[in-house]
Design a protein around this nucleic acid. Structure first.
Lengths: 204, 204, 204, 204
DNA sequence: AATGAATGAGACTTCATTCAT
DNA sequence: TATGAATGAAGTCTCATTCAT
């Protein structure tokens, strides 16, 4: 699955369009026009529109996998948790379009096959989260909380944050010179750190 | 916007199909076939497919609005918060299909107009949440936390819970004789109560 | 499988085009243009081009089946055989286009399913032929000859006669005022009668 | 029209595919893939797909021409006729694919030019047949019968025999250890000899 | 009030061919 | 000599919508 520059360019454009309009509402013509290529090129490079989606997902999904080595260096459980959150947010922001596609299409009955990749990703990230929790429990600073539920809240918060750009913009003044994306990233990180720590230390 | 029985039936079927396959991937023929009516009927009753979506959203969205009278009777801030969560979850579960449609289509650039309704809903619910928080602050049991962020986590958690049925099923044993939907409802309620309380009482 | 006038008209035009250019080389546009209808109409009435072929074959193939009652009235075996030949040629000439389509497409691997209908037709006609032969054998005027082989020669002769219009025209002067088709029909009938009688009475 | 090995290989593969699926249903990609060559190669060597067909026909058609020297050695008219039949069948069997292509495409209006070659072949073979008949007439053992009609029956019988493999298989038990092709060849030869002799000696 | 017939627009895809290398 | 990249044309089919009844 080696992709040349042309293919990567097409993928980039397709990602943006799929994310904005949905897979079904995006025509190969739209993609071709934006990429300034012939319509037939998409099939030439990807065989079909459906396969383009598959390649596009497979190609990008790895970036979303948490990499324990990025935060395991922290001995303090709280710091490790925080670092994990930073790493987590960073990874999602590296390709916001794809994440939106994934969430939209994962629900689509027709495209269940791609949700397998999505599932696998979740499994991996949940496991990473479990390990961070366990570490804190061992250190005596966290009590255990189901990582599936935690992960659900993390990811859900992230997605909603992103999806509700317009609502949030209405309620919050973004400091000058800062893009919404930057602001969102900072606030999201702060918020996620906060809720994770709150949940893992809360005494019911 | 008075709807007769035939229209309501069409709306019900359209909702289910839009939720499962997406708006674009659902043809008016699909709807007509399931509703055992003529294809022309949909345009006859709703003018256009697009307008059917609009009517369908407008018709159902009210059910999602929090109604303060349902939980304001509780004097204890914690109980009030819990009751609000119960009410919140209940309202979403009353029409899961529509909620899925809303989240999927709200992102769609082409259909920004519908997201206005969605935004309005959010504004309303955020305000309700703000009031509950303020009440707890007044009572001296909560510290303040931004209701926009809280709401984002609530709704995001809910959506992800629902969307990830299959992942969750893999990790959790559902008690016999209980449907996934029932279980999801119970666990989700419990989890939401927990995280809200945790966040609102956590000392950073 | 009731066909309305529009459908019958389309079938007629499609038959002529499929026969002349082959199924693959005939586009639905060609058919639509000739029938002076919208391209979409063909799919509207027949679902697909492939299905149009199927309907077209199923609709017409019955006419090719020999009907014993048409010649069984003849007590003399020779006359019965001759009458059968006349009936046989007549039936083929009633729809030359379809017969050409059948022979062309029966060979096509992709369209094996239609050849089932063709096979069934052959089985029927071979059985009819067998009965006529048996009758002559009973009467003591024919000796038995394999009807499968006989049928093969009959049908092959017919097809080749038809296919080689241009070669035949070169060798034979057609009487004035007679169309090639008429002449072909007369000559073919005469020839078929001759070879059948020759074969069934030849002492090797 | 000198053909190198690569060209001959392409022709062989194209023949098989054209015969099985028809000219229109065979893409140059199919041919290229089977021949393990680049798609552009076919145009490079043959200029166009259409021309490939022409070259392929021109290259192979000679094999089908009857060669009087193969059977003229027989003094006995019956034996000469039989030998001609053997030679005739043999020549067709040397390249069954091409023969199927010829018969399929000869009918096609779009490709009338190739049918010229086909016509020329028929003319030649009809002439050969005429000579054999005349010889028998001279010998006083045959009465004259139009060679055009005889040839039509011969070729038609052959083609139908071949085309109806499946029908014939159903009616006839092929001896063990014999392929259908072998059986067909033997039976066909026998049958053709029989009908020719029957026709040429039958007293109406 | 309701619908069957019909259609124009546009979807994806495949095709034979060309061109620069 | 040979080929990978690229393309315009055309293919079939599906779509939402309209219109006469």
């Amino acid at each position: 699955m080696e992709l040349n520059n042309k293919q990567l360019e097409i993928i980039g454009i397709a990602k943006a369009l799929f994310a904005q309009h949905g897979f079904d509402a995006t025509s190969v013509r739209d993609i071709a026009q934006r990429a300034q290529i012939n319509v037939a090129m998409i099939n030439y490079y990807f065989n079909s529109k459906e396969n383009l989606l598959e390649v596009l997902i497979k190609h990008g999904i790895e970036a979303y996998k948490l990499d324990a080595s990025q935060y395991n260096t922290e001995a303090d459980a709280f710091l490790r948790l925080e670092k994990m959150v930073e790493h987590y947010v960073e990874s999602k922001f590296s390709d916001l379009h794809l994440y939106q596609i994934l969430t939209n299409e994962a629900n689509n009955k027709k495209r269940e096959s791609y949700s397998i990749l999505f599932k696998e990703l979740r499994r991996h990230n949940i496991q990473c989260l479990r390990e961070v929790i366990s570490y804190g429990v061992e250190q005596g600073v966290f009590h255990f909380y189901d990582p599936v539920l935690l992960h659900t809240s993390m990811i859900g918060t992230f997605l909603n944050f992103k999806m509700n750009k317009s609502v949030i913009e209405e309620f919050i003044d973004i400091p000058k010179g800062m893009s919404f994306e930057e602001y969102l990233k900072i606030e999201l990180t702060k918020h996620l750190k906060y809720i994770l720590k709150a949940i893992l230390t809360y005494e019911n």
